[in-house]
Design a protein around this nucleic acid. Sequence first.
RNA 1: GAUCUGCUAGCUCAGUUGGUUUAGAGCGCUUGCUUGACAGGCAAGAGGUCACAAGUUCAAAUCUUGUGCAGAUCACCA
Length: 908
Amino acid sequence: MEIASKYDPRAVEDKWYNFWLEKKLFHSEPDNRRPYTVVIPPPNVTGVLHMGHMLNNTIQDVLVRRARMMGKNACWVPGTDHASIATEAKVVNMLKEKGIDKRDIGRDEFLKYAWQWKEEHGGIILKQLRKLGASCDWDRTAFTMDDIRYESVIRVFVDLYQKGLIYRGVRMVNWDPKALTAVSDEEVIYKESHSKLFYLRYYIDNEQPRSGVGVKDKDYIVVATTRPETILGDTAVCVHPDDERFQWLKGKRVIVPSVGRSVPVIMDEYVDREFGTGALKITPAHDVNDYNLGMKYNLPSINIFNDNGTLNDNGGKYKDMDRFACRKAIMKDLEAEDLVEKVEDYVNKVGHSERTDAVIEPKLSAQWFLKMTDLAKKALEVVENNDIQFHPEKFKNIYRHWLENIKDWCISRQLWWGHRIPAYYLDVDGKRETIVAASREEAFEEACRRFPGVVTSKEQLEQDEDVLDTWFSSWLWPISLFDGIRNPDNEEIKYYYPTDDLITAPDIIFFWVARMIMAGEEYRHEVPFRHVYFTGIVRDKLGRKMSKSLGNSPDPIELMEKYGADGVRMGMLLTAPAGNDLPFDESICEQGRNFANKMWNALRLVKGWKVSKELNQSSENQVSVEWMEQRMACVLEQVEKDFDQYRLSEALMNCYKLAWDDFCSWYLEMVKPAFGSPIDGETYQATISIFERLTYMLHPFMPFVTEEIWHLLQDEAPCDGEDEESARKREMRNQLAASSSIMMQHMPVSVFFDQRLLDACTTARETIAGVRNIRNTKGLSPKEELELYIVGSEDKAGNGRFDGIIKKLANVKEIHYVDQKVEGAVSFMIGTTECFVPMSQHIDVEAEKKKLEEELKYAEGFLASVMKKLGNEKFVNGAPEKVVAVERQKKADAEQKIAALKAQLANL
RNA sequence: GAUCUGCUAGCUCAGUUGGUUUAGAGCGCUUGCUUGACAGGCAAGAGGUCACAAGUUCAAAUCUUGUGCAGAUCACCA
C-alpha cells in the first residue's frame, strides 16, 4: 500500500465527518447505558464562529467523545440562541439601509423580516462546528424560540407570576438609549473614563431671610457634578447634616442654575463630605441614589430625557438636543452667566451597554422583575455543598459574592424579537387590570371569570408590548431541550437530566450559569449539571482579548484549512488549562499538525513492515512489547486522573508524550527490523494492538486523523502463501472494519503495571543516551560500532533484559560487565554505576578532566546538603524514619559516586 | 475602595497532604545529522538563587505575615 509521506487533513476530514453522520454515530436515544449529557452554550443564531467558540466546543467534543468511547450513552445537544438585542439590532440596521423604520411597519411585519433574517443568516455557526469535528446530535438541534422552547418560556413566566415571584413595577432601571430598552444590571459594563468634574454655583433663594450662621460673604454654594445637563431635572441640593460648613443652609432653598427653579436644601447622611464640595445636587429622575433620596424626602421627579437620550420638553431651550451635546451647550451658557466655579479633570466609571456600548441612562420606568432572594439561596447552597463543582474552584468565590448581593432581575425588554410577555391588560371601571396567562384564549377565560360581563371578546385584551430578556429563555436550556418544562415526566428528561458537564466562559457565570442552577432547582428540584468547566479567554500574542473590532482574531475556518481541524484542536488544548486565559498564537497549531503527521508516519512505518509468521519473537522484542504495555498502563492511569480533575491539557500532553516519545522514539525503534528484514508475527500483532489503543486515547483530541489511521491499521494486507480460505476471511474482516468506526471502540482502561520494569527501561534509555552523547561529543559516526563496559553485574545494571536493546539503539557491539575501571576509555555514570566506552582515538584528557570535575563539584555540593541534614540531631531524631533512611541512601550514593569520580580523575 | 487569583527556564505551564526535587514538561534555543516512517524529522545539549522580605519547622517552591507587580470580580462616591 502506498501511503503519502505527509498527512493531508483536507483529504480525510470531510470524508470521516460525513461517514459519522451517515452512521448516525452522534445520535443518542435513551437506553439502558449510563447517559452522559452536555448541552451546548447556544451561540447567537446569526453569529459566526470565533476562537472562543473553537476552544469551548473543542473541549466539549473531547469530553463527549471520550465518554462515548467509555461506553456511556453520550448526548451533546446543539442549538442556537435568538439573542434578542443583538439580532433585533441587526435587523433594524438592515431595514434602515432599505429606508424602513421599524415603527412604521409595526410589530408583525418586523417579525416577518426578523424570521427571514434568521433563516438566511441563522445556523452558519452550527455548520462551522461540523468542520471542527463536533460530535453533536444534530437531530436534536434546538432554537430558543422554536415551538417547544417558546412555550416553555411562556409557561415558566406564568408559573412564576402565579407563585408571586414575578411582578411588575416602576423602578429605576438601566436604560440603553441606543437599543431603546431596559437592560439588567449584569448587562451594564462599567468602564473607566476621563471625565470632567464641574463645580457649579447654586445661589441662595433670596426670597427667604438669611440666618446669621456660617459663611456670609457668599450668597451661593458650590455643587460638583459630572453631568451638568441633569441640573435641568434637579429638585434639591443635599448636604451632610453634621457638616459644619453647611449648617447655615438649614431650611434654605437654592436656585438651580440656568433653570432658575427654587429647590430645597436637604440634609442626609448619604452625602460624602470629602467628595467635591460636600454638597450634592439631587436629580431623582436620572440617578439611582438621587431617586432613593427623592423617595425619602418626597421630592418631585423631573424627567428631562426622551428614550433615545435627547432632551424632552422639560429641557427648555435644550429640547431635542442629545444629552452630550446638551452638556457642552449648558456649560457654555453657565460660564457666560458666571455660574461655573471651576472644572477639574476627573476619572470615573461610566456604565455602558454590553450590547450597544451606549452610555447607560438610569431611567424610571415600568418593568417586569423576578424576585431573586429565594432562588439565589438554593442556587448558592448546591455550589457550596459541591453538588455542583466548579473547575477551577476559584469561581466559587465570585459566584457566592454575586448571589449574596443579588437584586431582582429586570426581565422585560422593549424589543419585539423575543418571547412576548404573556400579560394582558384590561380596563375595568377605569382601572387597568393585569391578566397573566399562557395564551390570549386562556387570558380571555380568566378575564371572564374574574370580571364577569366586562369582556366580550379576546380582542379587548391588550397584550404587553415587551419581550423577555434573552437569558430568561437560556436559563431553561438544560431542561427545555428535553421538553422538561411542558412534559416534566417524559422519558428523555428523566434519562438525560441532570446533565453532566457544562463548558462555558466565565463571563456568563451570572447571566447563564447561576440562573440555570436556579431554574434547575425550581423546575426539577435538582441541579442542571454536576460540573462546570470554565474556559479561559482567548487572547492574542500581546495579551489582548480577541475581538472583531480589534481585528486580531484569526478566522477559525482558515486556520482549519491550514493546519487541519485536528491540528487546531490540539493547538487550542495544549495551552488551555481550565480558567486560565489562552494566549493564542497560530504556531501552536503547527505543533498539533506536526503531531498528526508524526502519527501518520508511524503508521507508514508499521504498514511498511514485512511480517514473517515463521520467525520466533526475540527476547528483545518480547521485553519491548512488555515494556510498552506497562508504559501505556502507567500513562493511562495518569490520563484518567487528569480527566477526573478536568486537566485536559495535561491529559493531552501525557498522551502526546506517550505517542511521540515512548511509542515512536523508543518502542518502534526497539522493535524495528533491519532494512529488508521481516518482523515476527507476534511482535507485529502486538504493535498493531498497541497502536490501536494509542489512537483510542488520542481520538477525543484529534478525531479525524485517528479515524483515518485506525481504518488503515485494520486493513490487513495479504500475506505470503495465503490460501483461498484465509484470503476470504481476511477480506471479510477488512470489509467489516471498513464499515466500523474508531468511535465505536472502547477506551482502554488502566491496569496494574510493574514499576520495576519501567525503571529498568529508564536505566537502559539513560545508558543509550550516555553512549550517544559520547558519540556526539567525540564526533563519532552512529555507524561506528562501540564497546561498552559496565562496572558491576548485570543485575545491578537493572537486569540484563534490555542489553540487546542497548546494543541495537546505541550501536554497541558488546556489553562487558567488569569489576574495575577501564583504561583508555571515556566514562559516564548512570546513578552510581560507572560505564566506559574505550576509544581507539586519542582522548582529550583536559576535556575529560573538566567534565569529571564539574560532575564531582555537583556531587560534593549535593553530599554537603545531605550531610547538613544528617548532621542535625533534631532532623535525625525528629524526622520520620523513612525520610532519614532516604537521606542516608542519598549520602551513600553520593559518596560512592564521589569516590568513583575521584578515582577516574586520578586515572587521568 | 473591597474581595479573590496568580507571580517557578526565553514563552506557556506542572509541581497533589511541607521530606527520593540544589526543581519538571512542551515549545523555543544551541550543536551535530540528506540515519530507507517522518527536516512538519532524528540525536545530544544548554537554560531557573521557584517575585521580594521576615517568620514557623529538624526540613519551605510548598505553611503564615508583610511588600511589590499583574489579572479578575464586585462597589451608589456625585
